[in-house]
């Protein structure tokens, strides 16, 4: 298999397979969650919970209480830089927008490549420092399991291979592009069955917690 055939394979059958597993996995996991149902409410609900749900979805973007940021500022800042960097480089890089338009039918303006380039570097740097931090602190290292390292690797590789492909570093561009797409496909396949599913569930989880909390208690 030469690199052209490899690229066609990752753009064709491999992408279809990965998308199918992602969709199958997400549908399966969401239905399982749906079937869990809601706990029985023994008291009259305080409110419909909508306001509480929205409030929690937003409030949890910020550190929960004073002092937490001072104690863990590094993880919070680096975590934000990585997540925002990943989000921006994925959703605002022109070739990605074309891909998403072909799948979803909607399009939006992108950012110039040099901007994406800087954001990707910051994001990669943030990820590396977070990994070092994870190793450096014994408690964090003790709490980390295989899934944590797998998640880090699967999130790191698309950014890293994308950066190398864009700059035509190391391997011929078609091969590096194929590896970049393949790294995303592996991420898509693993995502629904690991903690990486938080990409889709974090808003639902925040909403559910916020809404249920808002339903409890005495009406005022």
């Amino acid at each position: 298999m030469n690199y052209t055939e490899f690229l066609l394979w990752v753009r064709g059958p491999a992408f279809h397979f990965a998308t199918a597993i992602l969709v199958l996995g997400l549908t399966l996991r969401f239905l399982e969650m749906l079937f869990l149902g809601s706990p029985r409410q023994y008291a009259a609900v305080r409110s419909n919970g909508i306001a509480g749900g929205i409030r929690t979805v937003i409030s949890r973007f910020a550190p929960p209480e004073p002092g937490v940021f001072q104690r863990s500022w590094f993880i919070i800042v680096a975590g934000y830089l990585f997540h925002l960097g990943f989000f921006i480089s994925f959703f605002l890089f022109a070739p990605h927008i074309i891909l998403l338009k072909s799948l979803l039918g909607v399009s939006w303006p992108g950012l110039p490549a040099p901007v994406i380039n800087i954001i990707t570097i910051i994001s990669l740097f943030a990820m590396i420092t977070l990994l070092i931090n994870r190793w450096y602190y014994p408690v964090l290292r003790f709490l980390s399991d295989f899934e944590d390292y797998l998640s880090w690797t699967l999130a790191f590789l698309p950014l890293f291979t994308g950066y190398l492909a864009f700059h035509h570093i190391w391997l011929p561009y078609p091969l590096m592009l194929a590896l970049h797409i393949l790294s995303v496909e592996i991420l898509m396949i693993v995502l629904p069955f690991t903690k990486l599913i938080h990409t889709f569930t974090f808003i639902i989880a925040r909403w559910t917690n916020g809404a249920r909390a808002a339903q409890k208690g005495v009406q005022v």
Partner: peptide, 21 residues
Amino acid sequence: ALSVPLTGTATAVSYAMVGGA
């Protein structure tokens, strides 16, 4: 465009949704 996958994604997604459901 080069970043667009080859045709067949919609079919794969349809089967996957039915299977997942």
